[in-house]
Design a protein around this nucleic acid. Structure first.
Length: 274
DNA sequence: AGACGTACCTGACCGC
DNA sequence: TGCGGTCAGGTACGTC
């Protein structure tokens, strides 16, 4: 899926076409995705005016004027596409026609995505959101917090950063990229990372995510921005998907390696990352 | 509490 | 062309 930069890019794409508009028609085309959709979803969406779109972690939150918010997660393969009423295609699961004639279509082949409705003021207690760690681009995420949180943790730093309770928004790509930039081995035990490295890691995570957002996210497979444009941060990957290719650090000469950690590929430079 | 593995899905790609 | 195996941007949940 879409990690934080891709989700934020989608949010920014939807914002101008949805904000202030009423949902004229909601077409819920199956019972659910990963889980069943909420009760009476169609009725709870139709006629609602969108007040604003926010992002928390990898979730898009659509605040409606009736006091509820639509929670959207794109899973691994979810996309939000904007059109003026295109014919439906395979895996179009939810179609929202706005009063301005814009159609928002949620398409998700693997159906790992999620949607739910929740009172806006109770979002912090929603089961999907309540245990989330801090936003990586927010003030609460700093070296002190991260050090405390990971103190005495035995799991590899790669796994610790993928855990959304540690910090939200990172996924397999950006964890690999951030660890390479910070010269930290993905296999290092999280609790063993020095304070010095920890203080290097935090700004590195912020930088890689910020740069990716500025590039419109990364387009792999069929991920696209809401307007159909491709992001281009994938051209900036230093390690992700580059097994066997030379490390991009000047004078390194080592090739990028791939290992598997808790069932997922990790790409790193064995020479630069200790 | 923390650290695992498993499950949920479809589609693309590779080797035979 | 077809078939089986592998892999993919995520995360909740069960079990030890």
């Amino acid at each position: 899926m879409p990690e934080l930069p891709e989700v934020e890019t989608v949010r920014r794409g939807l914002e101008p076409v949805m904000t202030g508009q009423r949902i004229a028609k909601a077409d819920i085309r199956r019972e659910g995705l990963r889980w069943p959709f909420p009760e009476n979803m169609t009725a709870r969406l139709e006629g609602q005016r969108v007040e604003r779109l926010r992002r928390r972690a990898k979730y898009i939150l659509v605040d409606l004027d009736g006091g509820e918010s639509l929670i959207i997660h794109l899973g691994m393969s979810g996309r939000m596409l904007i059109s003026d009423g295109d014919d439906l295609i395979k895996h179009d699961h939810v179609v929202l026609d706005m009063e301005n004639g814009v159609r928002i279509t949620f398409n998700d082949p693997r159906r790992f995505g999620m949607m739910d409705l929740c009172a806006t003021e109770a979002l912090d207690e929603h089961r999907l959101l309540k245990d989330m760690g801090p936003e990586p681009l927010g003030n609460a995420f700093d070296a002190k917090y991260l050090g405390e949180r990971l103190k005495s943790r035995k799991m590899p730093i790669k796994s610790a950063l993928l855990d959304q309770k540690t910090v939200v928004g990172l996924g397999n790509i950006y964890v690999c990229e951030a660890l390479w930039r910070a010269h930290i081995s993905p296999t290092q035990k999280a609790g063993d990372i020095s304070t010095k490295k920890m203080s290097r890691l935090v700004p590195t995570i912020r930088d890689v995510l910020t740069e990716a957002i500025d590039s419109g996210g990364s387009s792999l497979k069929d991920y696209r921005q809401a307007d159909g444009e491709l992001g281009y941060f994938q051209h900036s990957f230093a390690v992700y998907g580059r097994e066997g290719e030379p490390c991009k650090a000047a004078d390194c000469g080592q090739n990028i390696a791939r290992i598997v950690q808790s069932g997922r590929s990790t790409f790193y430079c064995p020479k630069c990352q200790k």
